[in-house]
Each structure stands twice: as structure tokens, then as C-alpha cells.
């Protein structure tokens, strides 16, 4: 049945094609329903942004305030600080995370001793499964000035004389977020690239070897170009998250000293929105984020198209 569906001549009517692909269509329906229920229906909640929402009343009984909440948002000096922090930390995390995962995948791919490869892979992706609540405490302890391992090592090596209070230096906060993100996610991120590498035709390597390419040259001219589509699709998808930048990580690692650099949109929505029962305001912030994310994804997609890369839609 399947073969006949595939072999059917093109140019038939719409309903003929529906009939031919009915099995496929049936299989997609559950996912479609899922997306509609969980991704599209909640968008009605956006109405809250134009109201002064108070819980316990139905959405139509609320007072309407027009663009008041957006005006409050764009008038708030904290907003611009938050925008800067979110963008900076997202870009740092995206760049460091992607590059480190690719490098790890490339290196793991070259390891020939199986048990070593397996154990490195397992060890490097284990932190992914620790919740940030625990991980943040590990990071705090490691960075402590009172016997934290990083300061101890640096002092034993005589690189520094006094312990450095890493978490208390505003300029360092973004980078601590970046590095701890790499520590936690590098192994997990590498798995996708390893899978992409595994799909490369081995004859490519063989012919490269015959042409006299060493390991490094093989990596550069065969492995990397072959996984380029994977990299660009993942990058485009991740751009959609640029205005999210995580929540638990910043929330749990922040302190008063670095608050100007630590507050991201999610924390802002919490502190100035949900915690104060300003649900409408929080929704307005959420809408702003969604709209900007949408623009980012589509423009990245256009760019990828222009450069002749793999793209999303």
C-alpha cells in the first residue's frame, strides 16, 4: 500500500492526495492536537496584557487598560538593563555551548579506544541530569573564597595570592553563567553532533586519506562541512530562545552584589510581575519576548537561506 502511495503520479486533486497519505495524516494528528492545545490555545491569555487582570474573575469581567502595561514596561529603566543582560548571557551561552559541544564531539570522534570514549562521554553528559538547584550549590561551593576548589587550586599554583570572590564581581557574572552552562551541558550537546558525525559516509574519509589528508585535515575538510547543516539548524532553533537565557541558573547564582548583571527577563517577570500579582504586566513582558524571538528566528532563517545553508522553514 505504501509503495503504491509513493509511486502515485503527481498532479491529482487535493482529496486524492489526502486519501493516499491518510495513514501519515492520521499519525500526525495527535501531535497537531497537542500543539494546538498547548501552544495555540494559551495565546488567548495574551488578552491579559491589555487588562488589569485580577485572579478569580473570568477573562471578560476584567478591566481593560489598552497598552498601559506596555507603556509601563518601556518606561522602566530596569527593562533595558534586563534586555542587555538577557541578550548578553544568551549569546555567551549559545556561542560557548555550541563551540564546546562541537569540539568535544570532534575530539571524541577521533578517540579510538572504546572504553575511554564511552567513559568520557558518560562523565561529560552526567551533569545535564543534575537539577540547577543542586548544581548551583556545587558551583557556589567551588567558587567560594573559603576553601572553594577553584581558589585553592589557583593559590597552590601561585597564580593568585588572595582568593578571588568570583560570584561577587559583577563583570564576571555573565562568564560564570557561560562556563557553568558549558560544564553542565557540553556532553549532552555533543551527543547530537556525534550522531551527525556517525552518519557521514566513511568512503569520504578513505578517499581523503588516499589524497594524503591527516586527521586534522580530515576534520576540517570532511567532518565539519558534513555536520554544517546540523549546526545551522540548531543555531536557528536556539535563536528562538535568546530572550529566555534560562531562569534557575541565574536565579540561584545571583546575589545582591551582581543583581544589575544577573536579572534576566524570566527573573524580571517574576520579581516585578507574578510576585506582585501583576499578571498583566508579566504577560506584557512575555508578549514582548515572543514577538522579538519570532523576528529573530525568521531573520536567521532568511540569512541561512541567502547563504545557501540548511534552514528550518
Amino acid at each position: 500500500m505504501n509503495t503504491s502511495a509513493c509511486a502515485a503520479p503527481r498532479g491529482k486533486t487535493f482529496w486524492d492526495r489526502v486519501k493516499q497519505q491518510k495513514v501519515l495524516i492520521l499519525m500526525t494528528i495527535p501531535f497537531l492536537v497537542h500543539v494546538i492545545i498547548f501552544r495555540y490555545v494559551p495565546i488567548w491569555g495574551w488578552l491579559m496584557a491589555f487588562q488589569n487582570y485580577w485572579p478569580g474573575k473570568s477573562i471578560l469581567q476584567q478591566t481593560w487598560v489598552g497598552l498601559e502595561n506596555f507603556k509601563l514596561l518601556f518606561d522602566d529603566p530596569v527593562f533595558y538593563q534586563v534586555l542587555r543582560n538577557t541578550l548578553a548571557m544568551s549569546v555567551i551561552k549559545l556561542a560557548m555551548g555550541t563551540v564546546s559541544s562541537i569540539i568535544l564531539a570532534l575530539m571524541l570522534n577521533e578517540v579510538r579506544i572504546m572504553w575511554f570514549k564511552k567513559s568520557v562521554q558518560t562523565i561529560s553528559y552526567l551533569p545535564h541530569f543534575i537539577s540547577w538547584v543542586v548544581a548551583a550549590n556545587l558551583v557556589r561551593d567551588a567558587l567560594s573564597t573559603d576553601g572553594g576548589i577553584i581558589n585553592e587550586v589557583l593559590m597552590r599554583l601561585h597564580i593568585i595570592k588572595q582568593p578571588i570572590m568570583f560570584l561577587g564581581i559583577p563583570a564576571l557574572f555573565w562568564w560564570i553563567i557561560g562556563v557553568s552552562h558549558v560544564w553542565k551541558e557540553v556532553g549532552w550537546g555533543a551527543i547530537i553532533y556525534l550522531a551527525a558525525i556517525a552518519a557521514i559516509d566513511p568512503t569520504l574519509y578513505e578517499s581523503a586519506m588516499i589524497d594524503g589528508a591527516g586527521r586534522l585535515k580530515q576534520m576540517w575538510y570532511i567532518t565539519l562541512p558534513s555536520i554544517r547543516p546540523t549546526i545551522s539548524v540548531l543555531l536557528i532553533m536556539n535563536l528562538g530562545w535568546v530572550l529566555s537565557a534560562g531562569f534557575e541558573q541565574q536565579y540561584l547564582l545571583q546575589n545582591g552584589r551582581v543583581i544589575d548583571y544577573a536579572r534576566v527577563f524570566t527573573i524580571y517577570e517574576l520579581d516585578y510581575g507574578i510576585k506582585m500579582m501583576r499578571y498583566s504586566f508579566a504577560t506584557a513582558v512575555g508578549i514582548f519576548r515572543s514577538v522579538v524571538s519570532l523576528i529573530l528566528v525568521f531573520s536567521a532563517n532568511q540569512l541561512a537561506k541567502r547563504w545557501g545553508q540548511e534552514r528550518l522553514v
Binding site: N137, R140, T145, N255
Partner: peptide, 8 residues
């Protein structure tokens, strides 16, 4: 304590 402001 130097790290008093960053302790949880």
C-alpha cells in the same frame, strides 16, 4: 567575612 554577601 569577605564572601558574606554572596552566601546563601
Amino acid at each position: 567575612d569577605p564572601e558574606t554577601f554572596i552566601l546563601n
